[in-house]
């Protein structure tokens, strides 16, 4: 996948396929330490202990694991390609947490992509699920919480086109404001 936002969409869709009612997406960029961490945490049905070690194997596609697909193997490859790793923690009946770590300025670290679009897709198809998107760049932080938005909106659904437009724009502007690293800074090598 060319962008991290596409990986995130894929992993979050696993969460939704597992019946989650809340999906928390957290991205943390640590500039001094040069790493980027993506965490997707859900309260879905979880993965059994026997299945857990196999979820990053692309050839595990039995019916019982249908909801996993290729998302995790591809994320693992993308992370390992830039000196990172992927960790999956899960408890049956409680939920799953996927943590992917990347070296922030590695040449092959995929660009962040359009997180506004990713969240827009997730929310429009699942307006009753609670989504949290939190993005930190050192001490700066951007947070979007659909639960809070729902309270403000009253009878208007989160899948209303103007609401979705607002969400997409708010994320794009919010990320710009905190200086989210959209792609690794190779250019600085030239100076």
């Amino acid at each position: 996948m060319l962008e991290l936002s596409m990986h995130i969409l894929d992993i979050a869709q696993n969460s939704l396929a597992a019946g989650s009612t809340r999906v928390e997406i957290r991205i943390q960029e640590d500039l001094p330490a040069d790493f980027l961490v993506i965490e997707v945490r859900d309260n879905g049905r979880g993965i059994s202990g026997a299945m857990l070690p196999k979820v990053t194997d692309p050839f595990v596609t039995s019916r019982t694991t249908r909801e996993v697909g290729l998302g995790l193997p591809l994320l693992k490859e993308a992370a390992e390609r830039c000196e990172g790793c992927v960790e999956v923690r899960s408890e049956e009946g409680r939920g799953t947490t996927v943590v992917a770590r990347f070296r922030l300025d590695h040449f092959d670290r995929a660009p962040l992509g359009d997180m506004g679009e990713t969240m827009g897709i997730l929310i429009s198809a699942n307006p009753d699920v609670d989504f949290l998107y939190e993005h930190r760049v050192d001490q700066r932080i951007y947070i979007m919480e659909t639960r809070e938005m729902r309270q403000v909106l009253g009878s208007i659904g989160l899948d209303d086109p103007s609401v979705l437009d607002f969400v997409r724009q708010d994320i794009r502007m919010g990320l710009k404001k905190i200086g989210a690293a959209t792609f690794p800074k190779i250019m600085e090598v030239l100076r």
Partner: peptide, 13 residues
């Protein structure tokens, strides 16, 4: 198929 700024850096390097 890459489109981001870094492709220019690679081309220059």
């Amino acid at each position: 198929r890459q489109t981001h700024l870094n492709i220019v850096a690679i081309a220059v390097m």
